[in-house]
Design a protein around this nucleic acid. Structure first.
Length: 447
RNA sequence: GGGAGCGUGGCGCAAUGGCUAGCGCACUGGGUUGUGGUCCCAGGGGUUGCGGGUUCGAGCCCCGUCGCUCCUCCCA
């Protein structure tokens, strides 16, 4: 092999695509139900967007960014996450004045320069939602409910919601001081990282997994106990909404997040169906972000989740996803006349929405049938000189083996191999809804 | 970032320091030039990750390097 894959990059091959589409379809479907509109932001942004937005002291910015100079000597960065770009887009398009309230979702590749391992590559994929321009606690609840519904529709069990509030900017500053005072006496007995964090970002000490640090972390005061009246009542209201929506949660007073822009509500959704990397979704409020990027004070909240993690689970839970992919018809052609008629017929049938494939390698009939099997073709039609001239042939049902005489007229043939469904769809993928076909979409409907 | 293990056709594996590096799957062709999944036959495909060293001789031993996997860490 002359070229190796760049470290941390990987191909997603046709055989695994069905599970990716299942995961992506679930995200899109939930976005439809909750009325979130898709936004597609660039993969590349000015480096400063992330250093300012995500935070100078965060792991992402200090050691994980894919940063490079372009030919104009601008410092650019491959997006390490989605929220900063969405916030940037909000300002770029003047939404703060024209359409200040936005419910958005995104889906796509992100890049972080990390040590690769299972479920963690340098190019990876996230989906996420963002609500901008609304401070009401009901929004926090909706965002959490979205995350929960999504995991439920994907069949993930053992869901657990961890919830906390880290307060507004002023609260956080105060809480930092409280933590510093708490950890200062015992900092000598804690790990090197924590010693460094004590000054830089004491909140991150709460994330430390070192055995020796745990006793001190357990005794640390929780952020939710040190909120200003406004933040405290917001947090109480969020909990009230969650109760009303019957979403169970555990308050974790020491839950903090890795990015600097978070304020007030923070949460994580985990599943017992996963192994050590059990966090499915992480999110929270970021009421200061838009302002930090130069806009007016604008509240925001959202979450992000990893698609790889969903795909891994789906492959285990729905190993037969690939079985649903079937070809309507394979045209086995013989001789020049057969191939010419076959190419024409295939093209005509495709215009009627039928999925058709033809032999392109002039192979023997036997090999063509083998190929039809591999493609999981429902039907097969042998097309040689005789059929081309007579305008009719034998359509073979590949499951039962039965054959029947059919006309080669594209419209009537299409009707046979690609019947319109009973739910009134036109077979063109624009069903009004309610189709429930075996295998998902024998008529090509998206519902 | 720290630790451990592993690198041999596309994939999964085998080969005591000693003959031309084998096997299964997959692929291609044929048996059967017009009817499938089975079976039989044949074929193509390898600088044993890369570089150096030890040796009469290295896929195998040693050193380095790159990569992958797992744990840890981080998180999505």
């Amino acid at each position: 092999m002359s070229y190796d894959l760049v470290r941390g990059m990987y191909d997603i091959l046709p055989d695994e695509i069905p599970w990716w589409q299942l995961a992506e379809d679930a995200v899109r479907e939930m976005a439809r139900r909750y009325n979130y509109r898709e936004i597609r932001v660039p993969l590349v942004e000015h480096t400063e967007l992330f250093t300012r937005g995500v935070g100078e002291a965060t792991d992402i910015v200090t050691k994980e960014m894919y940063t490079f100079q372009d030919r104009g000597e601008r410092s650019l960065t491959l997006r390490p996450e989605g929220t900063a770009s969405v916030a940037r887009a909000y300002l770029t398009h003047g939404w703060q004045t024209s359409e200040p309230f936005q419910k958005l979702f995104y889906l796509g590749p992100m890049f972080r320069y990390e040590k690769p391992q299972k479920g963690r590559n340098r190019q990876f994929h996230q989906y996420g939602i963002e609500v901008l321009g609304a401070l009401d606690p009901s929004v926090d609840a909706e965002v959490i409910a979205f995350a929960w519904s999504l995991m439920e529709i994907l069949g993930l069990g053992g869901l657990r919601l961890r919830l906390n509030s880290i307060g507004c900017a002023a609260d956080r500053e105060q809480y930092r001081e409280i933590l510093r005072r708490h950890f200062a006496p015992s900092i000598d007995r804690m790990c090197d990282d924590c010693r460094r964090r004590l000054d830089e970002n004491p909140l991150r000490i709460l994330d430390c997994k070192e055995e020796r640090c745990q006793p001190f972390i357990q005794e640390a005061p929780g952020s939710a106990d040190h909120l200003c009246p406004d933040c405290a009542s917001h947090f109480a209201a969020v909990r009230g909404w969650l109760d009303r929506l019957e979403l169970a949660y555990d308050i974790d007073p020491r839950l903090v997040r890795g990015l600097d822009y978070y304020t007030r509500t923070v949460f994580e959704l985990m599943s017992s169906d996963l192994g050590s990397q059990d966090t499915l979704i992480g999110g929270g409020r970021y009421d200061g972000l838009i302002e930090m990027l130069g806009g007016p004070p604008t509240p925001g909240i959202g979450f992000a989740g990893g698609l790889e993690r969903l795909v891994l689970v789906l492959q285990q839970r729905q190993p037969d996803a690939i079985e649903a992919e079937r070809l309507d018809l394979f045209l086995a052609t013989l001789g020049d006349e057969g191939r010419q008629a076959g190419m024409k017929l295939a093209t005509d049938l495709r215009a009627f929405g039928v999925s058709v494939d033809v032999d392109h390698r002039a192979r023997g009939l036997r090999k063509q049938m083998t190929q039809a099997n591999q493609l999981r073709a429902r039907n097969l039609l042998v097309l040689g000189e005789d059929e081309a001239r007579a305008g009719k042939g034998k359509l073979k049902d590949m499951d039962s083996g039965e054959e029947r005489e059919v006309s080669l007229d594209p419209e009537s043939l299409a009707e046979l191999v690609y019947p319109a469904c009973d739910d009134g769809c036109d077979g063109g993928g624009t069903c009004a809804g309610g189709c429930d076909h075996e295998g998902g979409s024998s008529c090509g409907c998206s519902s």
